Simulated scan of single mutants.
Amino acid sequence: MMEQCVISVIIPVYKAEKYLSRCIASLLAQSFTAFELLLIDDGSPDNSGKICHDWAERDCRIRVLHQTNAGVSAARNKGLDEAKGEYIVFVDSDDYVGTDYLKHLYEERPLEQDSIVVHGFTIVSEQADRQYTTSFIPSVYTGRDVRELFLNDEMRDMRGPVAKLFSRVLIERLGLRFPVEISFGEDTIFNFQYLFHCRQVVVGSHVDYVYCDVPGSLTKCLNDFASEYATFKLYKSITVRLAGKLDLNVADMRTAFSFVVLFFQRALIADYRSAGKVPFSLRTQHLRRLAAEQRSFMKEFYHPGYKADKWGRQFLLHGFCFCYNLYMSILCSCRFRYVFGYPEKA
C-alpha cells in the first residue's frame, strides 16, 4: 500500500527514450519516499510511453497519463490537474536528481503556504563535455523583501520550474497553469505569476538537480515573430505588475527588466534566424509594429552590447525600419558575427 502522498512530482515526456529511465530511476532512489510520480506522455512517437508503463509496473507510486501531443505546458498542466500531493515538484525527462533532492526541498519548506523553496542546480553539456553549477546563499525573503530577488543576478537563475518546491494549495487557489499559447518562456511566466502572490521565498544552498543540456533543446530554438513577440509582451506585462507591487524605481526596473530584454531580442531576431525565409516586406512590417509599440521600452531598457546592434537600435528608435531591415539583412548575409549580442548589464 502506498504511503501518504506529500509531494507530486510531474514529468512531461516527449521523445525522451534515451534519457527517461535515468530520470525515473533517480527519483525512485529518493531518500524521501512520500511522493507520487506523474509521467505525462505528450503523444511521444518513440518508445517513451512504453518505458513509462514498464516503470509503472515496478512501483505503485508511478501514474502514467497520456494525451495527444500538445506541448510541454499542456503536459505540465495535465499533471497539475491530476496531482494529489500538498506540494508540487517539476522535473524534466532528460534530467536527473540526487538521492536527497526531495528530502532537501521538503525539509526547508516554511509553515507559510503561500511560499516557494528554491535550490541550485548543475548544468551538464553533453556536446561540450563540460558542466557548471549554480548555487545560492541560503536566504529567506518575506513580504516586500522579495524585491531583492529582482535586483540581483540570482533571479536569472531561478526562472525555470525545476529545483523548486511549489505549494499546490496556492497554485489551485490562483487557478495557475502554464500558458499553452507560447512555447518558450512559459515556465518563467508561471514562476512570476506564482511569485506575485508569494509571502515567503526560501532560497537554499543544496544542489541536487542535474540539468542536461542536450541537442534540440527548446531554449535553443526560435519560433516565428508572432510567437516570440507574444511571449515578450506577456513576460513584460507580468514584470510590470511585479515592479508595481514591489515599488521599484526606474533604476531598479532597469535591473529587473534586464532579462525581459532577452525576450525582446528573441522577437527582434526571429525573422532573421527563421528556418524558412521571411520576405523582406513582411520583416519590415513586423519591425514597424515592434518599433511603434515598444519605442519607450527600447529607449529605457534596450541597450545592446554590440556596436552593430547599437546602430540598429537608433534606426528603430527613429522609425527607420526599412533601413534597419536592409542593414541587418546585409550583416546576416555576410555572416557578420558581432550582431544580436547580449544586452549591456544594467
Rank of each mutant, 00 (worst) to 15 (best):
E3R: 07
C5P: 00
C5W: 00
I7Y: 00
I7S: 01
Y14Q: 06
A16T: 02
L20E: 01
R22Q: 13
A25G: 04
S26G: 06
L28Q: 10
F35P: 00
L37S: 00
L39Q: 01
D42K: 01
G43D: 05
G43M: 03
P45T: 08
D46A: 07
S48E: 06
K50E: 11
A56E: 08
R58F: 04
R63Y: 00
H66K: 06
N69Q: 04
G71R: 06
A75M: 07
A75Y: 03
R76N: 09
N77F: 08
K78S: 05
E82M: 10
E82F: 08
E82Q: 15
E82K: 08
K84D: 01
K84W: 00
E86V: 02
E86A: 07
Y87C: 03
F90E: 04
D92G: 05
S93Q: 02
D94F: 02
D95L: 01
D95M: 01
V97P: 00
H104K: 13
L105Q: 02
L105R: 00
R109Y: 09
R109E: 13
Q113P: 15
D114Y: 11
S115D: 05
I116F: 04
V117Q: 03
H119Q: 14
T122S: 10
I123E: 09
A128V: 01
T133M: 12
T134H: 13
S139I: 07
Y141A: 09
G143A: 10
R147Q: 12
N152F: 12
M155N: 14
D157P: 03
G160L: 15
K164W: 04
S167K: 04
V169E: 11
L170G: 05
P179E: 09
E181T: 11
E181F: 09
E181G: 11
T188M: 14
V202D: 06
V214W: 09
P215I: 05
G216S: 15
G216L: 14
C221K: 15
N223D: 11
F225A: 06
S227P: 00
S227V: 05
Y229W: 04
Y229A: 01
T231D: 02
I238T: 13
T239A: 11
R241N: 12
R241F: 05
A243M: 14
K245S: 09
D247C: 12
L248C: 10
V250K: 14
V250Q: 13
A251N: 14
D252S: 10
M253L: 13
F257Y: 13
V260S: 09
L262Q: 09
F263T: 02
Q265E: 15
R266N: 02
A267M: 09
L268S: 05
I269C: 12
A270Q: 02
R273T: 03
S274V: 03
K277G: 00
V278M: 06
V278C: 07
F280V: 08
L282S: 13
L282C: 07
R288C: 11
R288K: 14
A291T: 15
Q294V: 01
R295S: 13
M298C: 15
M298T: 12
M298D: 08
F301V: 14
Y302N: 06
Y302C: 10
P304N: 13
Y306G: 09
A308E: 07
K310E: 15
R313S: 04
R313F: 01
Q314F: 12
L317G: 02
L317Q: 06
H318W: 08
C323R: 03
Y324A: 07
L326E: 07
I330L: 12
I330T: 05
L331W: 04
S333W: 13
S333F: 05
C334N: 08
F336Y: 14
G341T: 11
